[in-house]
Design a protein around this nucleic acid. Structure first.
Lengths: 279, 279
DNA sequence: AAGTGGTCTAGACCACGAG
DNA sequence: TCGTGGTCTAGACCACTTC
């Protein structure tokens, strides 16, 4: 395309300004900064400044090629950079678009209060109710021998059997988090509801407290990292979207570990809040 | 290179096995999965399995080209994918290496206890002492008018002046976090040490409590995202490394906000832990 | 000097979406 | 059908590291 014609600035522009030079800042080919980074810098600036608001369409590859006089791969490298930064999404056949920020769910530590559990205001259903979204939970329950690491974390003898609850949580059909919980079998025997896919109103914490395993405290450990390929697919994460990894330990009386929960949450859809006493 | 010769598997391999087919799983050119993804899959598998342990050198581009019979750009795309996932680092002139995991600093909420403050065991110096590393803090102090958003967060009238403390924290010369704190001027007047770059033993929280502004509670809000270019440079983050963004609000008596701290922490160097009471 | 990864060009064919 | 982005090839020159 455009063979034999002089490079133009915008495929839809009038010719008036083409005689005066580029409208978009041209690349400086003598600069140490690679051309693809210069192009990315300019697009990034336009996104940050709001010239290209969320949902806006970036120039097509052919437009970038004409605008900056670069090869196709060079313009693609620029867009790849923005994709890795989580700023844009490419859709084959349509174009490249500035990413829209999804609504953020705020999880406060107050949602662990006993009052909430007893009022059936705890857990994912309450989280979605607060956000006005439709909850959906995929559950798989099994029993298996704990790995040495897991047994260590739970204070159990090696190779102890544990109940395993694997879940995927969705709000309005959008995957929010993956979670795997492990519960010692003596706790499950005291509160059989825990072993069912649907653990009933108030969730497994309510079942535990009904069965004489009051919850004394939780500890949550938080890290972040890029998702594995499997996590990115299961959570439908865009490129350049990290995950929050939350590892929760639930303690009953006498510091007994009554649950371990390993969670992987979509990093662009959650905000976690914690209260810390001043003394 | 290798013009006119049939593609071989390893540049250093004997010819014995080449008659039998590739040693590394070959790419399936009829598969729907792009070749560069197939190459990345194989390298990722070797990294996860420990065949390529942290610090190990990946095959060079020329080796990958011969091994998989692909073009140079195709093998580069595979390595680019692994870089974006944070699994490897490329060093010009040397090669591509499996990334080593840096030591992780665990921050527990107990470090906010009054006991720690009074024993001078609070803050970044105590964090590094626990980790056995040498602390370094770059501080810039200024005063400026609060933005409307900041005034809102602090419960101050619009355009109020606030003290601004901007810091960069390093441990053994490695950048760990960027932080900006805002303190209302009446608190600074009561506790002038807060306005000095070195706020003295126990830090600004100790100064506040000495000056009759006891700390009642903290709230920390946590999100994750990819760093900006500036943050990635300042924190010396490798490709594919997200950040933890922590926004802390410090409350004094009568729910007065006595400090706001916005922190950006290297996502691969921190683990945050919080205690949550069971009631 | 040789080998490594970084950048760039000029083509090609394909799958997908919209008109 | 046409324009879009996705994949792939076969070259080229460069900067940097190692020997």
């Amino acid at each position: 395309m455009a063979e034999g014609r002089p490079a133009r600035l915008h495929s839809t522009a009038t010719y008036v300004c083409t005689a005066w030079g580029p409208v978009s800042p041209p690349v400086d080919r003598r600069s140490d900064r690679p051309i693809y980074r210069q192009i990315a810098d300019e697009l990034r600036r336009q996104i940050r400044s709001g010239e290209l608001p969320p949902g806006a369409k970036l120039p097509t590859e052919n437009e970038l090629i004409e605008r900056y006089g670069a090869a196709r791969l060079t313009t693609r490298q620029a867009v790849e950079l923005l994709k890795a930064e989580g700023l844009v999404d490419a859709v084959r056949g349509r174009g490249v678009f500035v990413r829209r920020q999804p609504p953020i769910v705020r999880l406060g530590s107050e949602r662990f209060s006993r009052w909430r559990r007893q009022a059936n205001q705890a857990g994912f259903f309450a989280d979605t109710a607060a956000a006005g979204t439709r909850p959906e939970i995929e559950v798989h329950v099994s029993r298996r021998a704990a790995s040495p690491e897991l047994a260590e974390r739970m204070g159990l003898p090696r190779r102890s059997q544990v109940l395993v609850r694997e879940r995927r949580y969705l709000a309005d059909g959008i995957p929010m988090q993956l979670a795997t919980s492990y519960v010692p079998l003596d706790v499950v025997e005291a509160a059989p509801g825990i072993g069912k896919p649907n653990s009933g109103p108030g969730g497994i914490y309510m079942r535990m407290e009904e069965a004489g395993h009051p919850i004394v405290r939780f500890v949550e450990r938080i890290t972040t990292r890029m998702p594995t390929q499997e996590e990115a697919a299961s959570l439908q994460l865009g490129a350049g979207t990290p995950v929050l990894q939350v590892q929760r330990t639930t303690y009953g009386e006498a510091d007994k570990v009554i649950e371990i929960a390993d969670m992987v949450r979509a990093g662009d859809r959650y905000e976690l809040a914690y209260d810390i006493p001043g003394d």
